[in-house]
Design a protein around this nucleic acid. Sequence first.
DNA 1: AACAGACCCTGAGGGC
DNA 2: TGCCCTCAGGGTCTGT
Length: 270
Amino acid sequence: MPELPEVETVRRILNKSIIGKKILGIDIRYDKIIQNVSVEEFKKSLINQTFINVNRKGKYLICELNDYYLLVHLRMEGKFFLMHDEELSKHDHIIFKFEDSNLRYNDTRKFGTMHLFKKDIDIYNVYPLNKVGLEPFDEKFTKEYLQEKFKNNTRPIKTALLDQEIVAGLGNIYVDEVLFMSSIYPKTRAKDVNIEQLDKIVESSRIVLNKAINLGGTTIRSFQSSHDITGRFQNELLVHTKEICPNCNSKIDKIKVGGRGTYYCPVCQK
DNA sequence: AACAGACCCTGAGGGC
DNA sequence: TGCCCTCAGGGTCTGT
C-alpha cells in the first residue's frame, strides 16, 4: 500500500527510467482509471509527448510532459513496470508504448487514478492537488500548524492525521508508527492532544518518513524492467502488525479507528 | 460544517 | 478440492 515513502521511491525510479522517452501509442484496457478527460482525449493528448520529469506532492505523482501534466495516484496497489515484449498481465490497465519498451500501469484493485492537465494551468490550485495539504517535510508543518487545524477537531487523532488535507502522505501504517513514537492513544480526540504531543507528532513524522524513504519504502513491488523492488522498511516497523511492544513487552492491541485497522500499545500509548 | 458510513475492487484466508 | 463469505484499504461521495 503506497504511502509517501513508496510513492517517492517510485518517483525516483521513474525519473531514472522514463525521462526522454516519447509516447508513440497508448492502450487503455480499463477506462475508469482516467478521471477528468475522456479516454479518447487522454490518448490524443499524450501521443507524441515526451516524459520530461516526475515530481510528487503527497501521494500524487506528477509526470511532466511537453504540453501536459499527468497526475497519478497509486491508491492501494498501483504499480509501474517498464517492459519489453513480455506477455501482458490481466492487471496491466494502461500501457504507454515507447520505441524500444513500454511502461505499464498495473493495479490489482483498480483503485488508482490518473488526471490530465494542460500545462498552462497552475495544477496546484485545481482539484485534486488543491486538496493536498502540507507534507511533514514542509517547514510550515509545525506544532502550531497542527494546533490550529485540530483546535475544534473532535475526531480521533489517528483519523485527523490520515486526512490528506491536513497532512499529505501519511497512510495507515505510518500513522500507527507516528502515534506509537509519540506515545499517543489513537482514539484521543485531536483537540485534546497537547502541544508537546503535537511537537512529537511533527518530529516522529519526519523521522519515520525519512527512514522509510531511505530504505525504499515498506513493501512495494513497483518497478524496473520486471525486477521487483522490495522496500526494507517493514523490518523496522515498531507497532504496525506487531504483537509485542518493543518498549515494554506488552501485548499490542488491534482495534478499529475510523474504519481502519489500528495497532497500538495499551501501556505506552495513553 | 463536520462527521459517519457506503462505495470502488480483487485476492487472501477462514469455514465447511 | 472448492465454494462462499468476509475483510482490507485511500479517498470520494452521500447521507445525517
